[in-house]
């Protein structure tokens, strides 16, 4: 019985530690643009669409400028189709990493003024 208990404990601890490792490696902090630029790992940034630069969609990619609360601007490149409601967006959340002067987004969340109008883009 005691041996069994130890075995169970070992298995459970194994699962728990594995999960903790998986958790640690997927944690994406919400940062300011300044922090995003100095960070090498995946981060999440939020900003409003900068009016000085209009959205420009090139073949299969979307390039636009975001401005954060501190007034800093960053160019976001997103490979994929333009999310619905991008033009009316109140603010845009981009998840990805900063590289070579641009923020390469893997995922965009468009925050619309209306209630249930978000859209999914991966």
């Amino acid at each position: 019985m005691k041996k069994h208990r130890l075995l169970y404990l070992a298995v459970i601890l194994g699962f728990v530690f594995y999960s903790m490792w998986a958790y640690q490696s997927s944690l994406t902090p919400y940062v300011t643009f300044a922090q995003a630029k100095s960070s090498k790992s995946q981060v999440q940034v939020k900003g409003t669409l900068s009016k000085s630069n209009l959205i420009q969609s090139e073949r299969n990619s979307l390039i636009f400028a975001l401005r954060d609360e501190a007034g800093e601007e960053v160019t976001v490149v997103y490979k994929g189709t333009k999310p619905e409601g991008m033009d009316q967006a109140e603010s845009v959340v981009a998840i990805g990493r900063y590289n070579n002067g641009q923020f390469h987004a893997d995922k965009l969340l468009v925050k619309c003024p209306s209630k249930y109008q978000g859209s999914v883009n991966k």
Binding site: A22, Y23, S25, S26, L27, T28, P29, Y30, I95
Partner: peptide, 12 residues
């Protein structure tokens, strides 16, 4: 605040 990548769910 931090968000969590979907890798976590898939891996764990």
């Amino acid at each position: 605040p931090k968000s969590l990548g979907t890798d976590f769910y898939n891996n764990s």
